[in-house]
Design a protein around this nucleic acid. Structure first.
Length: 291
DNA sequence: AGGTGTCAAGCGTCC
DNA sequence: GGACGCTTGACACCT
């Protein structure tokens, strides 16, 4: 089992997500940002490796505006060697990598222009993982998408558009149950139609349940992962006491976290802690698992 | 140097 | 119809 955290490391003292405003776009600005982001990403991966953290989500801001028409800079060619070096580092320490394109990415949008932009954005994410030469176990996780007042139609549209995705995207894509629209059962239906693995989010399941117990939902999702997809990924977070329902906790609640571990059928899963203090909670969770 | 309004993209919810 | 939240953090302009 590997434990990880998303995107930002507050301890290492640099950011791999530095960006700028669209108005300030220039080839120079982009190249400088990417160079600085990649240098920081290397430091973060080494930081994780040295502390036994084997799972990490790379920020979508690694290459700012990568899928925007304004970005004509050949960043893939310019930074090819840097991506390859990073990929070698990741593979050497057997680290698991994921990415999570943000809420604007909708495979099942009603507006075909939105879907088109989403595919471009997904292609950028897949390109990053491909440039690093990471195995297919390095995944892109998204939600099923918009509801538009008709869930069965939303699921059908996802399944239809999934088949049209470029292969580099399709083979890395996984879907995650979300906190208000598509439940674990809905995601399992999408899996039945498309074969796409389901990433179980324990907090979202608690907020937007389809009736299964934690254990049952976890097992059902785990079964959707094939060997080539790598160990099933799971997102974990908990409610911040006193905050808005759905607000992520400041720090991991170790007792709650252990409930998730106890529900798992084996240790062959990778768990991402979506907690505000990021690497600190990952370390705390790791320590709690040690005998 | 420090304060703060605002930032590419879309949905659903609440007012 | 508009503000807000979503993995929010940090950019960029203001004083």
């Amino acid at each position: 089992m590997r434990i990880g955290y998303p995107c930002i490391n507050r301890a290492v003292g640099c950011s791999s997500a530095s960006t700028f405003r669209l108005r300030s776009y220039s080839a120079r600005r982009l190249a400088d940002s990417v160079a600085s982001n990649l240098a920081c990403l290397k430091r973060v991966i080494e930081w994780n490796r040295d502390r036994g953290i084997g799972f990490f989500r790379i920020t979508s801001d690694l290459v700012p505006f990568a899928s925007h028409p304004v970005c004509t800079y050949p960043w893939q060619r310019r930074f090819r060697a840097d991506f390859e070096r990073l990929g070698r580092l990741v593979r050497r320490c057997r680290m698991r990598i994921s990415m999570h394109p943000d809420q604007f990415v909708l495979i099942n949008a009603l507006d075909p222009r939105v879907t088109r932009r989403s595919v471009r954005e997904l292609a950028y994410h897949a390109r990053v993982l491909d440039l690093m030469k990471l195995p297919l176990a390095a995944k892109l996780q998204i939600h099923v998408g918009g509801l538009y007042g008709d869930k069965p139609a939303g699921i059908a549209r996802f399944a239809k558009n999934f088949r049209l995705l470029p292969a580099p995207v399709r083979r890395r894509l996984v879907i995650e149950n979300d906190d208000r629209s598509y439940t674990v059962s809905d995601c399992l239906e999408v899996h039945r139609l498309t074969g796409v693995p389901v990433l179980f989010d324990s907090f979202h399941h608690a907020l937007n349940s389809s009736g299964q117990s934690l254990r049952e939902a976890l097992w059902l999702c785990i079964r959707t992962w094939r060997r080539r997809d790598g160990p099933p990924m799971v997102d974990y977070s908990s409610q911040q006491p006193g905050a808005r329902r759905g607000a992520h906790a400041e720090h991991v609640d170790i007792r709650d976290f252990r409930r998730l571990l106890a529900a798992a059928p084996s240790s062959n899963i990778d768990i991402m802690l979506e907690v505000k203090d990021k690497e600190q909670s990952a370390i705390a969770a790791l320590v709690s698992c040690r005998p």
